[in-house]
C-alpha cells in the first residue's frame, strides 16, 4: 500500500530543513535515512554490551567519527554533552560514596560514558537529518490515517494555539489570573482550570471534529491513497 508521504513532507517542508549541511566529509548525508537509523541503533546497542574501559574508548572513538561524518559543527559537541552533566555528577557521587576513591571515580566515569554513548548516536542522527527526510522515512511505516494524524496535528496546532491565545486574552480581561507567576500560587489553579484549561480542551475537541469532517468531506479514509508529486 502506497503511503501518503506528501502530507508529512508538506508539513515539514523546506522551511524546517535547517539540518542539511554541505561539508564535504559529511558522507552520512548521502546514506539513506533508514541505513542511518539502523547504524544509530547498532551503535546504541554496542554501548550496552561493552564492559572494559578500552572497549568504551573504542566505541567513543567510533561515535566521534559518526559525529564528524554526519557533518555537525563542532559547537554541537557542547550541546550534546550538556544534558548529561547533571546525571554524570549524580552518578559519580553515588559511585564515590559506594566504592570510594579511585575505584568509584573510574567506575562512575565508565558508566557515565556508556550512558552517553547509548543516547548520542540517536541525537546525532536527528540533528543531522532534515525533518522532511525523517518524516518521509517515518511515514513509510505508518498506516494512512496515522500519517495523516501526525501531519495534521502539527499543521493545525498553530490554529489551536491561536484559538487558545484568544481565549486567554478574553479571560485575562475578565480578571482571571493566568500568568506563569500567578500560577505559582496553588489557590489560583481552580480558576486556571475553569477559565482556560476546560474551555481550551472543549475548543480542541470541536476543532478536531471540524478537521475530521473536512477531511471526510474530501473523501479521506483509512485505506489506499496515492501521493501528490510536488516537484514534478
Amino acid at each position: 500500500m502506497r503511503r501518503n508521504r506528501s502530507d508529512l513532507m508538506q508539513m515539514m517542508g523546506s522551511a524546517g530543513d535547517t539540518h542539511i549541511l554541505t561539508k564535504k566529509w559529511a558522507v552520512m548525508q548521502r546514506v539513506p535515512v533508514a541505513v542511518r537509523l539502523v547504524t544509530c541503533l547498532l551503535l546504541s546497542a554496542f554501548a550496552f554490551i561493552v564492559r572494559s574501559p578500552e572497549a568504551v574508548a573504542v566505541l567513543a572513538g567510533i561515535n566521534v567519527l559518526w559525529f564528524v561524518l554526519s557533518g555537525l559543527p563542532a559547537a554541537f559537541v557542547f550541546k550534546l554533552i550538556k544534558p548529561f552533566v547533571m546525571q554524570t555528577v549524580v552518578l559519580l557521587s553515588l559511585y564515590l560514596l559506594q566504592q570510594g576513591y579511585p575505584a568509584g571515580l573510574s567506575a562512575g566515569l565508565k558508566i557515565s560514558c556508556q550512558l552517553l554513548l547509548t543516547l548520542v548516536p540517536g541525537m546525532v542522527l536527528l540533528w543531522s537529518t532534515s525533518p522532511s527526510q525523517l518524516a518521509q522515512s517515518i511515514s513509510r511505516f505508518l498506516p494512512a490515517q496515522a500519517a495523516f494524524v501526525l501531519a495534521s496535528s502539527l499543521h493545525f496546532f498553530p490554529l489551536a494555539l491561536a484559538d487558545m491565545t484568544a481565549l486567554y486574552h478574553v479571560q485575562v480581561l475578565k480578571g482571571a489570573r493566568l500568568s506563569l507567576r500567578d500560577l505559582m500560587c496553588p489557590w489560583r489553579w481552580p480558576d486556571f482550570i475553569t477559565c482556560l484549561v476546560v474551555p481550551a480542551v472543549v475548543q480542541a475537541l470541536a476543532l478536531t471534529t471540524e478537521i475530521a469532517t473536512a477531511a471526510k468531506a474530501r473523501n479521506f479514509h483509512n485505506g489506499r491513497r496515492s501521493c501528490w508529486q510536488e516537484d514534478s
Binding site: 506528501s6 508538506q10 517542508g13 499543521h155 490554529l159 473536512a214 477531511a215 474530501r218 510536488e230
Partner: peptide
Amino acid sequence: ESQLFARTIGA
C-alpha cells in the same frame, strides 16, 4: 482555516 490541509496550493 480548518479545511486547508496542505502547505502548497497544488497539494
